[in-house]
Simulated scan of single mutants.
Amino acid sequence: MDTDKAHAALDSVYGAGSPDALDAAYAAWAASYDSETASLGYLLPFLITAWVTRYVAAGEGPLLDAGCGTGLTGPQLKALGYSDLVGLDLSDDMLQVAAGRQTYGDLKKAMLGGPLPWPDGYFRAFFSTGVFTIGHAPASALRELVRVTKSGGHAIFTVRDQVFEIGGFRDVFVELEQAGKWRSLEESPWFRCYAVADPDAQVKTLVFEVL
Rank of each mutant, 00 (worst) to 15 (best):
A38L: 07
A38M: 12
S39T: 07
S39L: 13
L40D: 11
G41N: 02
Y42D: 02
L44T: 05
P45Y: 02
P45G: 04
I48R: 02
I48L: 04
T49S: 13
T49M: 07
T49A: 15
A50D: 15
W51T: 01
W51E: 00
W51P: 01
R54S: 07
Y55W: 01
V56E: 02
A57H: 08
G59L: 14
G59P: 08
G59W: 08
E60R: 12
G61M: 10
P62M: 02
L64I: 05
G67A: 08
G69C: 14
G69N: 01
T70K: 13
G71D: 09
G71R: 08
L72R: 11
T73L: 08
Q76T: 15
Q76E: 15
L77Q: 04
K78F: 11
K78Y: 11
A79K: 14
G81C: 02
G81P: 05
Y82N: 02
D84P: 02
G87M: 15
L88A: 09
L88R: 03
D89M: 10
D89Y: 08
L90S: 03
L90I: 12
L90N: 05
S91I: 03
D93N: 14
M94W: 09
L95T: 06
Q96H: 15
Q96L: 12
A98M: 07
A99S: 15
Q102Y: 06
Q102R: 15
T103Q: 13
T103D: 09
Y104C: 09
D106L: 14
K108R: 15
K109N: 06
A110K: 00
M111A: 10
M111C: 13
L112D: 03
G113Y: 01
G113R: 00
G114K: 14
P115D: 09
L116A: 00
P117D: 00
D120S: 14
G121T: 15
R124P: 03
A125F: 03
F127T: 02
S128H: 03
T129N: 01
G130D: 01
V131I: 14
F132C: 14
T133M: 10
T133S: 15
H136R: 11
H136V: 05
H136I: 13
P138S: 12
A139S: 14
A139G: 09
A141F: 11
A141T: 13
A141E: 08
L142A: 11
R143M: 13
V146F: 12
R147F: 08
T149S: 02
G152S: 02
G152E: 04
G152A: 07
G153N: 00
H154M: 10
A155E: 01
I156C: 04
F157M: 06
T158L: 04
V159W: 04
V159M: 02
V159T: 00
R160Q: 07
V163G: 06
F164V: 08
F164Q: 07
E165C: 05
E165H: 12
I166Y: 00
G167L: 07
G167T: 02
G168M: 09
G168L: 04
R170Q: 15
V172F: 01
F173G: 07
F173N: 11
V174N: 06
E175F: 12
Q178G: 06
A179P: 14
W182V: 10
W182L: 00
R183C: 14
R183G: 14
R183V: 08
